[in-house]
Design a protein around this nucleic acid. Structure first.
Lengths: 189, 189
DNA sequence: CATCATTAGTTGTTTAAGCAACATATTCGC
DNA sequence: GCGAATATGTTGCTTAAACAACTAATGATG
């Protein structure tokens, strides 16, 4: 993975800062969290913060991609097959991720939902694309990429719809949503 | 407390090393734990270990005094009065400490029990002495110190006796042991 | 017993983090 | 609005930790 060995001090303080930020996010709103708050919580010098992140927005960015979103995809990347089961897993991961976010963090994070959405979809797209290319190497790559785009938007859209409009449980919802997804993937096959 | 501000890096890596050692103690015997095991677990460079401790014996020493024993005395030092209640608390703390040690650590720690015993008694003595001097400043200090020695040995001896010879619970045992202790302190008053 | 391997310490050099001081920039109370 | 306090970046210097390379010691294996 990482070709050039990373100094353990770097990952350590980076994690300290990110963990401190996650902790503070549970207590305060994003706008009320200062750099000093973060570095105090992390027991790291304030100047050191700036050798890792330019500002707290970039930190939020890193936390979202590295810390929270990897939790979603860690389970899934292991499975080589994009089975019905893994689709279900992905959907449930997204919904729990979203509810985690709303309980763990304070209000002001609504402002970042669009950024989070974009990141999530990008990750989903990459995941789908990787699997499609692996299973259908003869197919035109651009075709597969476009299919991945639609699948990622579709499944994410479903999670948003579930959150806002549905009375079903997430498990029930995904059962109803499965056919179009699987058919969509079949079309490509 | 600490007059000269301590570099946070020092306490951080020191804690990393000590925590790693405690973790390993639950899995391995002391004799089987290498410096490399410790530093790997702590994600600290092996050379760094030696700028904190000369060897693993000194580390064990530090862990026992700073890490484990402070847990015992933290609750108690808050109370200014050496009441019946706090005596009971001390006794129960000692017994739970001893059983924690035997469950958390592997066999080979028997070899260090004498050292642990000495440390515990020294701490107890200091605790008693501090309280006696505070409450009876007119009394000869050496008299109070000797009383502290006897109290610490007595109460520790009781815990050893409880462990080996008694069928009572620790709570029942200390109830029976209380009169001599309290009388001993009264003699001084 | 010799050999190979692992561990224990040590040392010199490089790098990341701590620290203090500084110049903006925001925010807050009046 | 204005001044004081607080937050934000930045910089030069110091120190702790990482790293690599080495010797010595302990230990296992044939």
């Amino acid at each position: 993975m990482s070709q050039t060995r990373i100094d353990p001090r770097i990952t350590r303080t980076r994690n300290l800062i990110m963990d401190a930020f996650v902790q503070l996010s549970m207590k305060k709103e994003f706008k009320d969290i200062t750099i000093k708050d973060i570095t105090d919580e992390a027991t790291v010098n304030r100047a050191t913060f700036y050798s890792h992140f330019t500002d707290k927005y970039q930190l939020l960015d890193a936390v979202l991609t590295e810390d929270l979103m990897t939790k979603i995809f860690n389970d899934i990347n292991l499975h080589d097959e994009l089975s019905e089961e893994s689709i279900i897993k992905i959907f449930l991961s997204i919904t729990t991720f979203q509810s985690d976010l709303s309980t763990q963090c304070k209000r002001s994070y609504d402002a970042f939902m669009s950024s989070i959405e974009a990141k999530l979809k990008a990750q989903l797209e990459e995941l789908f694309c990787k699997h499609l290319i692996k299973n259908q190497p003869q197919e035109d790559p651009e075709t597969l990429r476009i299919a991945s785009v639609m699948l990622s938007w579709g499944i994410y859209g479903a999670s948003v719809d579930w959150q806002h409009n549905s009375k079903l449980t997430a498990e029930q919802y995904i059962q109803k949503a499965l056919p179009p997804i699987l058919n969509g993937m079949k079309l490509i096959k």
